[in-house]
Nucleic acid binder design. Structure first.
Length: 255
DNA sequence: ATGGCGGCTCGCAGCCGA
């Protein structure tokens, strides 16, 4: 079973790339972030025609998440229970016995902003929810744009980014808190070249210079981590014409 | 080095992302 996550930065713009990518890689489950589409504009037909069921929770301009699956998805949840949030950033469903959670964690903007406070509150609510989810679903996969670089290996210039949003200690501690629940960063189960990233700024020729960050992650519960065969970042997608600033991350598990 | 690109919108400038 192939599980993938991709921040598309506008599904309207990226739909042709998505369809090509689905056909080429045949993932079983795909979590999308930043669809930026209201639900009545979601391209259900095109995705269904590609052989996928699709759940989505969208809004105009910002945010928006979707969950594509080859097999039927059940027990959909579109918010962190008990956490009031008008921003559409969460989608969960059960597919083929695996509980899948798609996340678009807030960016935070800067550590002195209200948006950063919102990010930390959001992460606290996420922790409580995942603690409950992992108790009920031994096969749990939490995929998405976390907007957190787990450690300095995941940052092109750690000195420049020290203490900044995406790298600050409270954010990293929140992510470590999820690891302590029994969730594993599947990327680090395997060897990778140094400076392997999932996001590069559109500016400054950042991709060509590999000035990136690894902020998109696939976290797996112990039961799934034990059967995880690979986790790769598909950086070729960042080389296309009109790319998303994020590359997809794909994990394969033996099911 | 606080800009730079790219996407969005009751658009032609400003907000936001990361």
């Amino acid at each position: 079973m192939k599980l993938a996550t991709w921040n598309v930065n506008s599904l309207k713009v990226r739909l042709p790339q998505l369809l090509d990518w689905l056909a080429a890689g045949q993932p079983d489950i795909v979590c999308l972030q930043e669809t930026k589409l209201e639900d009545h504009n979601f391209p259900v037909e095109a995705i269904t025609a590609a052989g996928y069921q699709v759940l989505f929770s969208g809004q105009k301009t910002y945010n928006g998440v979707a969950l594509l699956s080859r097999k039927p998805a059940q027990d959909m949840v579109a918010a962190i229970p008990g956490f009031s949030d008008p921003q559409k950033r969460v989608l969960a469903a059960t597919v083929d016995g695996v509980r899948v959670i798609c996340l678009y964690i807030p960016n935070g903007q800067s550590v002195d902003s209200d948006k950063y406070r919102y990010k930390l509150d959001w992460l606290a609510a996420l922790h409580a929810w995942l603690q409950d989810e992992i108790a009920h679903h031994p096969k749990l996969a939490v995929l998405g744009d976390y907007n957190i670089a787990p450690d300095d290996r995941d940052v092109h210039d750690p000195a420049l980014w020290e203490g900044q949003v995406l790298c600050s200690a409270p954010e990293r501690e929140a992510l470590q808190g999820l690891f302590k629940l029994g969730l594993t960063d599947s990327f680090r189960l395997f060897e990778h070249p140094e400076k392997t990233f999932s996001w590069w700024d559109y500016r400054m020729n950042a991709f060509r210079r590999n000035m990136g960050m690894r902020i998109d992650h696939i976290l797996l519960s112990r039961e799934l981590a034990e059967i995880c065969r690979s986790c790769i970042i598909d950086r070729d997608m960042r080389k296309l014409e009109r790319p998303s600033d994020h590359a997809p991350v794909v994990a394969e598990i033996t099911m």
